[in-house]
Simulated assay, not measured.
Amino acid sequence: MTLKDIADLAGVSMMTVSNVINGKTSRVSQKTRDKVNAIIEEYGYVPNLNARSLSNKKSHIIGIIISLDEKDVLLGTNYFENPYVSTMIGAIEKELQKNEYFTMIRSVSKNADIISLLKNWNVDGIIILYPAAGEYMAKLMDSATCPIATFDCELDHPNLINITSNDEKGMYLSTKYMINHGHSAIAFVADYKNSHVLANRFNGYKRALEENHITFNPDYVYEYSPSYEGGIQAGREIASNSSPVTA
């Protein structure tokens, strides 16, 4: 069953059938719409999405890219097991589906790979989790041919849709919670020196200690990846060293 077949059965033009399928019905009578839709339903016609994307230059595909740290790649870290990442992807996919978009997910360990993907994917937009910042992202934004949204990116660019969290305040409140429950030997687990997001969290951790007159102890900082695997490593080190850490 093709558009031409439907048009012949309905006694209308292929353009009219196309307009009905795509919801452009302002100039199509209700009687004609009902007739075309009845034929579509009777024969189980499904539009060819590839053909549609070629004709209107829209794929209705949104790419979700997860930027992996090269260290985590070497460690075999599975970011899809990260509850934050999996929850984010689930929420994004749900919203895209409601708006009749499809999702294409890809993880990359090299920033240059994203530019290559942009050239080879026919996507209507890209959402990036854990984006790299600085010169690379600026170059990506300048060469992008579709909208780009990021979560927690430090780049300020007029064409970038950037959703951020107040990471410093979040960790400040978390540390305050521990302090209010009687803890003073509080460990901070994250390799924060190479990440602006983690550095902001570290600053919140230190600020909460200082405000509560608790001396910062560098021995309580464990510079592991804030992943499941990194948490296991930190936990083992804390346990094996008979550390006084209580939170």
Rank of each mutant, 00 (worst) to 15 (best):
Y222I: 01
E93I: 00
S195M: 06
F202M: 15
S195W: 07
V197I: 13
I127A: 05
H183R: 05
K94P: 04
E100C: 12
D124Y: 11
Q97H: 15
M171T: 13
T150G: 03
K94W: 08
M141P: 03
S143Y: 09
D113I: 06
Y101E: 12
Y224V: 01
Y192S: 07
I114R: 01
S109D: 07
Y228H: 11
M104E: 10
A190K: 03
Y101N: 13
P158T: 05
A149Y: 10
H157I: 07
K94D: 12
D191K: 09
E95I: 04
T150Q: 02
Y172C: 00
Y136F: 15
I148V: 15
A132W: 14
E100K: 14
N120H: 12
H196P: 11
V123H: 06
R207C: 01
Y192N: 11
Y130C: 07
E154Y: 05
F102T: 14
R201H: 11
I128D: 01
N120E: 14
I179H: 00
T145D: 10
P131A: 02
V123C: 13
L117G: 01
H183C: 12
N200R: 13
E210I: 08
N162A: 15
F188M: 05
L129H: 06
N180V: 00
L118R: 07
E95K: 10
S174L: 15
S109L: 03
R106Q: 10
K110C: 02
M137S: 00
N122Q: 12
Y177E: 08
K94T: 13
D219Q: 09
D142C: 02
D113K: 12
Y177G: 01
D156V: 11
I89K: 05
D191Y: 06
S195T: 07
N162Y: 05
P226K: 05
S116H: 15
L155F: 02
K193F: 11
A138C: 03
Y224A: 00
I126E: 04
H196L: 13
A149H: 09
G230R: 03
F188D: 02
D124E: 12
M178C: 11
D167Q: 14
I148C: 07
A91F: 07
K206V: 09
G90H: 13
A138K: 11
L140C: 09
I89E: 08
L155T: 06
M104H: 11
